[in-house]
Design a protein around this nucleic acid. Structure first.
Length: 495
DNA sequence: ATCGGCTCGCGCAA
DNA sequence: TGCGCGAAGCCGAT
């Protein structure tokens, strides 16, 4: 493992009288292909201590809902099963009204030699890790399982995708193959489990009554959506077999949602049910290309997106999305997770536009309630919003249009950002992720460039309109798909 | 259907 | 110092 993957979260010593090494599974909710788990195993063996894996789920995280909760719980069930197979001493804790989470993690840490956790630059994770690192009196390590290249390798922010693409290609030329252990076996983990009992009680997941939980938001799960690692691996197989070959042509077209050739893996990556490494390697295996990479990379011009990694442009295009475009968000927030909170870190040319156009008259003005209940004048915007609310996903082309219009039709840029953050984090399965934020910020010009002509509100930021979208795509099947979602009886829009 | 021009700032070659 | 070029667009000309 590249040591750049490990960052200390405090300067406290190892507590050698402790009885176990603790892996606090916060972001990457899996055992296989997980550098943090791997590092924790390594330390446990090195110190001849027990290994404990703790995965907790509280009720009070921001935008908490039954939708997000069930998705994570599916993952915990898969992890319980996998831990049993591997003989890992895995403690999962699901908070309920009568069994509060407060103080449990700290208590677990009291007997730890050290804590290993996931290094994830978004949502509550940086803050939670820093708080724990302050409170406990042992070392806390953060380990980066975010992507193939350690994010810390880059050392500075990339101003544009084309910059990061070159750096990443160079990294692969130098160091292809820094992979986390793909599949653990029981034998690998021998002697790491002394069956210590957790200092808390946690009931069985099947006994939970989610309808009685006090979530922050009232958002039901989407029927067609299952969480967890098994489902992630199944979707990957389906994608490789049935969709990947058409990725180039059928990705951005919202014509027929059933035929859209996207992987749908984004939420599974977000919760760590599957890793980027596994996706890349499984695709390469399916195309018998695994061993060709190091030799091929030697002859690549760094930054050549078309010819990157494989001789197949469709695969290369998908890899560019999965690697360059995913990683640029993780890098953007890496040292400064707080950059996600507002618009003040956008480039100068954007700031100039906003200074000039901030007081422009908005052609329409909507309130948070209008947005949320899809009550604008624009049927296409409403459809995109309904898709998000009902299914927890939004077509990737519609997502851009959706964001651009909220900017144009809100009283201020800041209000637009807050609306988009709220809607995305509340409803989307893949919200609360670095890429969700860069996706929103792209609508505000991040990683984009100016586009003429200058218009009200947006200035010379890239402009998008529903009329153009209708000309570009046949949207009948998209609109009827969204219609069919609305037909299903539930109470989301009737308050 | 396809094309060029619209604008800015970066990396890199010179 | 200058050149080339870039996630997804738009518009008007051909």
């Amino acid at each position: 493992m590249d040591l750049k993957r490990i960052r200390k979260a405090n300067d406290k010593p190892l507590k050698m009288e402790g009885s176990y090494v603790l892996y606090w599974m916060q972001a990457y909710r899996r055992f296989d292909a997980n550098f943090a788990f791997e590092y924790a195993v390594h330390l446990a063996k090195k110190f001849q201590k027990e290994l404990i894996v703790y995965e907790g789920l509280r009720i009070d995280y921001p935008w908490s809902s039954e939708r997000i909760h069930t998705f994570i719980l599916d993952g915990i069930e898969d992890n319980q099963e996998r831990a049993k197979e591997l003989g890992v001493n895995y403690w999962s804790f699901v908070e309920t009204k009568h069994n509060p989470a407060h103080g449990i993690l700290k208590k677990i840490c009291e007997s730890a030699v050290c804590v290993v956790t996931d290094d994830f630059p978004c949502f509550i994770i940086p803050e939670q890790t820093a708080n724990l690192a302050k409170k406990v009196n042992c070392s806390v390590f953060r380990v980066d399982s975010n992507s193939l290249v350690p994010i810390g390798f880059y050392g500075r922010e990339a101003s544009a995708a084309r910059v990061l693409r070159i750096w990443m290609h160079k990294a692969f030329q130098k160091d292809w193959g820094d992979f986390a252990k793909e599949v653990w076996t029981k034998k690998d983990l021998e002697d790491t489990n002394k069956n210590s009992k957790p200092p808390f009680a946690s009931g069985s997941i099947s006994d939970l009554d989610l309808s009685k939980m006090q979530f922050k938001e009232n958002v039901p799960p989407y029927g067609g959506k299952k969480g967890g690692r098994k489902e992630a691996l199944r979707l990957l197989r389906v994608f490789i077999q049935d969709k990947l070959n058409e990725y180039l042509t059928k990705r951005s077209n919202p014509d027929d949602p059933k035929l859209t050739a996207t992987s749908g893996l984004s939420p599974y990556l977000h919760f760590g049910f599957i890793s980027v490494q596994e996706i890349v390697l499984e695709i390469l295996k399916a195309h018998k290309l695994v061993s060709s990479i190091p030799e091929r990379m030697k002859n690549q011009k760094p930054g050549d997106r078309e010819n990157f990694l494989t001789p197949n442009p469709t695969l290369n295009h998908f890899f560019d999305e999965l690697l360059t475009w995913r990683e640029i968000g993780y890098l953007f927030f890496w040292e400064k997770p707080e950059f996600r909170k507002n618009l003040s870190h956008l480039p100068d040319w954007v700031q100039k536009n906003f200074a000039k156009h901030g007081n422009d008259k908005r052609p329409f003005l909507y309130t948070r309630e209008d947005w949320e209940s899809a009550k604008t004048h624009d049927p296409l915007w409403n459809a995109a919003q309904i898709e998000l609310v009902k299914t927890g996903s939004m077509h990737n082309y519609m997502r851009m249009l959706w964001g651009k219009k909220v900017i144009e039709w809100s009283a201020s840029y800041e209000e637009a950002f807050d609306t988009l953050e709220h809607l995305n984090n509340k409803y989307a399965y893949d919200g609360r992720n670095p890429n969700s934020y860069t996706g929103i910020l792209w609508c505000f010009g991040l990683f984009d460039r100016p586009w003429f002509p200058e218009r009200p509100v947006l200035g010379n930021l890239r402009y998008m309109s529903s009329d153009s979208t209708k000309k570009k795509f046949k949207l009948n099947s998209y609109l009827s798909y969204v219609d069919s979602l609305q037909g299903k009886s539930d109470t989301l829009f009737s308050k």
